[in-house]
Design a protein around this nucleic acid. Structure first.
Lengths: 177, 177
DNA sequence: AAAATTACGTCAATAGTGCTGACATAATTT
DNA sequence: AAATTATGTCAGCACTATTGACGTAATTTT
């Protein structure tokens, strides 16, 4: 501990400040907030032997039923191999089913089953509860502002992927026949 | 693909809605936002052969210089073993130094070196830039509201850890004596 | 003073999730 | 017919996290 073979490196005893106007407070809060935000579903997932990767796949398959493997890879920004394992498990446990693409038969359209839908909901519930509580606690209950802020945190090139599912309003031409 | 040995599991073709009033939009945005938020420092860390774990240690050692190993474990909520490797690397590369605790000589107080301070700043810079841009883009530029929201997302029991470093402002009503 | 506890370090083994590169197959496009 | 595309799969690797066990030095308790 005192046998330094290094060029010294004296200890800095002052806390890092807002040097250069860096917003350490929010950087740190974002870390804590995201950690706790994911901890709720982690509990549930553990019962199924699933991890966060399963959650993400399940989430997007429920949000965009019928999306293909390639589309899912693009949304998640992971590799085929990374997806393969978790997707296979979700299919084997009957949470997700694959259907041959209607236009292009090479494609696999991914859909949730009733079971997959139920699990996705169970995972989202505590997260949504936390969000609602946080909105209330933070006073303003300015949902729209938080939404805009989070969206602005995302890389501009990727925002397109997000707006794909505007839920119900903003009458998209989603024509689910 | 049609050789199902399962009890069936018919595909659900409708997108998951705001069933039960679940806020899927913000859940999803939080995922995208955090992913991109961490991608900036990830680029830099790769040059050092470091990962996110190194970043987190470096961050907190800079924020609370002199914190002990036990305190760091408590903040990060990881195990001793998980910390051991990354901390050792940070010490070996002269980013962090250990000093024997003054009161309790079993303790190791952790401090950043000049190098560690510089790296912490370099990692925080793009994150802070992203936050500032997002605050501006989201119009309101309501920093305080975002801060309150994120804090409210954290488990109440853990909020104590956060307020430890109120920097200077963060004019909370938490009456810091 | 002896015993118990604490703080830290370390070893071994394991899990989850990510990566790259290579290769195979079927289907579509050129 | 040839090239490309969508998907699946294999092998191997890296990082971060886990649990459990053990050792040592220092402190606290009895």
């Amino acid at each position: 501990m005192t046998d330094r073979s290094h060029p010294a490196g004296r200890p800095i005893r002052t806390a890092i400040a807002d040097e250069d106007g860096i917003d350490f407070a929010i950087i740190e809060l974002f870390f804590f907030a995201y950690r706790d935000f994911t901890s709720d579903p982690d509990q549930i997932l553990a019962d199924y032997g699933f991890g966060r990767a399963h959650h993400r796949v399940l989430h997007f398959v429920n949000r965009r039923p019928g999306l293909t493997v390639a589309e899912l890879l693009d949304v998640l920004k992971i590799t085929k191999q990374s997806l393969a394992r978790v997707l296979k498990q979700l299919i084997d446990t009957d949470h997700v089913v694959q259907l041959q693409g209607p236009r292009d038969r090479r494609q696999r359209e991914l859909y949730p089953t009733a079971r997959g839908r139920a699990l996705a909901l169970a995972l989202a519930r505590p997260q949504s509860r936390r969000i609602r509580a946080a909105l209330e606690d933070s006073g303003a209950s300015e949902r729209a502002l938080i939404e805009r802020f989070l969206e602005a945190m995302v890389n501009p090139e990727l925002r397109a992927q997000i707006d794909i599912v505007p839920a119900k309003m903003s009458g998209k031409s989603h024509g689910d026949h």
